[in-house]
Design a protein around this nucleic acid. Structure first.
Length: 263
DNA sequence: CTTAATGTTCCCCA
DNA sequence: TTGGGGAACATTAA
């Protein structure tokens, strides 16, 4: 469900409901989503006022009057400002006005106290400059697909957007990061900004689970050029889109438009 | 019945 | 320390 554009959309739709609210009571019921002492976590957030809701990478950061609560949506997590609890509701926040549910069928998401996790993240893709981006990229010998998925290298990209960024910049997912020419790195940096900005404007991609805090789907999946299009014709050249496994993830690319060696 | 899914972490090995 | 591969986590849908 959640890469940078989806998490950004959740934060934007969530903030109006949460900022200025006080958490009256919290209940957590999953030993996966809230590992450790769930009752203690509930006590820590109870009575706290929510002062800001922001995004860092794929994390939703709630700044409280005392401390921080961070939420990662994993693969199928949802934060919903309305509705009713289901079998997949693993967190319920009762607010002084309204309620907030955390739903997550696969329970890969996490709700944690403190901001330790976000301090280990790499730079934001929409803020990092080309100079810094290319300098750090030049030091890494791994495949570019794996590197862009590495949250400590750059924070917020996931499987969909990495594939789309590499297609738009004409770079093969198996290309070695340090061996990319300066013009190709510049193109990748530009594609990263373009794709993410456009995807946020379209309120993210809804493939199966993703909805924002109001329960609405995004529509950027309509604009995917390679992700989920295995065997279909490339929009640029007509060649069949290929799918391979890289870094353990399904990886979609056009074998004609994305060559390991520049044309 | 098998496979794959928007994610991350851990373990083994080179 | 870096990097590749695979498994694990839990659930659903095709």
């Amino acid at each position: 469900m959640p890469e940078l554009p989806e998490v950004e959309t959740v934060v934007r739709t969530l903030a109006p409901y949460l900022v200025g609210r006080r958490i009256v009571e919290a209940r957590f019921t999953s030993r996966f989503v809230t590992p450790g002492n769930r009752a203690k976590l509930a006590r820590q957030v109870s009575g706290r006022k929510i002062e800001a809701v922001t995004r860092r990478g794929k994390f939703i950061v709630m700044a409280l009057d005392q401390g921080h609560l961070i939420v990662h949506l994993g693969m199928t997590g949802k934060l919903l400002s309305n509705g009713t609890p289901t079998t997949h509701t693993h967190g319920v926040f009762t607010l002084d006005e309204g309620v907030l549910f955390y739903d997550d069928p696969r329970q890969f998401g996490r709700i944690e106290w403190g901001d330790a996790r976000v301090k280990k993240l790499g730079p934001e893709p929409l803020l990092v400059g080309l100079a810094e981006f290319s300098a750090s990229l030049r030091k890494r010998k791994t495949r570019v697909k794996a590197l862009l998925l590495n949250q400590a290298f750059i924070a917020g990209l996931g499987n969909i957007y990495v594939d789309e960024i590499l297609f738009l910049s004409g770079i093969h997912p198996l290309a070695q990061a340090s061996r990319l020419s300066a013009p190709r790195v510049a193109k990748m940096h530009q594609a990263m900004v373009e794709i993410l900005t456009l995807a946020i404007a379209h309120r993210g991609s809804s493939i199966s689970d993703y909805v924002d805090a109001d329960g609405n789907r995004g529509d950027f999946q309509m604009l995917h050029r390679v992700y989920g299009r295995e065997g279909e014709a490339c929009v640029q050249c007509g060649t069949a889109i290929r799918k391979v496994v890289v870094a353990g993830r399904g990886t979609h690319y056009c074998p004609a438009c994305q060559r390991r060696r520049p044309a």
